[in-house]
Simulated assay, not measured.
Amino acid sequence: MTTDEARETAATPADIPRLFVQFVQAGDYAGLASLYEPDAVLALPPGEQTRGNTAIAEVFRQVFTERTPGGEGSQLQPVLLSGDLALTSTRMSDGRVTAEIARRQPDGSWRWAIDNPSM
């Protein structure tokens, strides 16, 4: 596991999906939580919403104990950027498409504020 001091942050919105897969594969759920704003919203479990980066990390811990994220064959779609907001999206190898809204943080890094993984 990586310490907070050594953990990479997202310098661009496109870094977030890459770091997401990296942290999940490493079992670094604190790192995963760091990709979300403290009051972020996740559309998981299906039909529900999870709020807060710590709660989001726990939902993903549960999801990924059953399966790993679809990294192979997944394609990051072009990032749409408007000032301090960005829309990120990944086309998964099984055809599902994610949609996330990222926001530039005061330190210049990027974090997701809203995540709809379409799982």
Results as ranks from 00 to 15, higher is better:
residue 1 M to D: 11
residue 2 T to C: 07
residue 9 T to C: 11
residue 9 T to D: 05
residue 11 A to D: 12
residue 12 T to W: 08
residue 13 P to Y: 07
residue 14 A to P: 02
residue 14 A to W: 00
residue 15 D to A: 07
residue 16 I to S: 03
residue 16 I to C: 05
residue 17 P to S: 08
residue 18 R to F: 08
residue 23 F to H: 13
residue 23 F to S: 05
residue 24 V to D: 00
residue 25 Q to D: 11
residue 29 Y to F: 15
residue 32 L to K: 07
residue 33 A to K: 00
residue 33 A to Y: 00
residue 34 S to W: 01
residue 35 L to M: 01
residue 36 Y to L: 03
residue 37 E to R: 06
residue 38 P to E: 14
residue 39 D to Y: 00
residue 40 A to D: 04
residue 41 V to E: 06
residue 43 A to C: 10
residue 43 A to G: 08
residue 43 A to P: 00
residue 46 P to G: 09
residue 47 G to V: 13
residue 47 G to L: 07
residue 49 Q to G: 01
residue 49 Q to D: 06
residue 53 N to G: 11
residue 55 A to S: 04
residue 55 A to T: 05
residue 55 A to L: 02
residue 56 I to W: 00
residue 56 I to G: 03
residue 57 A to M: 01
residue 59 V to C: 06
residue 61 R to T: 05
residue 62 Q to L: 12
residue 62 Q to V: 15
residue 63 V to A: 14
residue 64 F to K: 06
residue 64 F to H: 09
residue 64 F to P: 03
residue 64 F to D: 04
residue 66 E to L: 15
residue 68 T to P: 10
residue 69 P to W: 08
residue 70 G to H: 09
residue 71 G to L: 07
residue 72 E to V: 09
residue 74 S to I: 07
residue 74 S to M: 13
residue 76 L to I: 11
residue 76 L to R: 01
residue 79 V to G: 02
residue 79 V to I: 14
residue 81 L to K: 14
residue 83 G to S: 11
residue 85 L to Q: 06
residue 87 L to G: 05
residue 88 T to V: 15
residue 88 T to D: 12
residue 88 T to I: 12
residue 89 S to N: 02
residue 89 S to W: 10
residue 90 T to N: 09
residue 90 T to I: 12
residue 91 R to C: 01
residue 91 R to V: 13
residue 91 R to T: 15
residue 92 M to H: 11
residue 92 M to D: 03
residue 94 D to Y: 10
residue 95 G to D: 10
residue 95 G to W: 09
residue 96 R to L: 12
residue 98 T to H: 03
residue 99 A to K: 00
residue 100 E to R: 08
residue 105 Q to S: 11
residue 106 P to T: 07
residue 107 D to P: 05
residue 108 G to K: 08
residue 111 R to N: 06
residue 112 W to K: 10
residue 114 I to Q: 10
residue 116 N to P: 05
residue 116 N to W: 04
residue 117 P to H: 09
residue 119 M to L: 15
residue 119 M to Y: 11
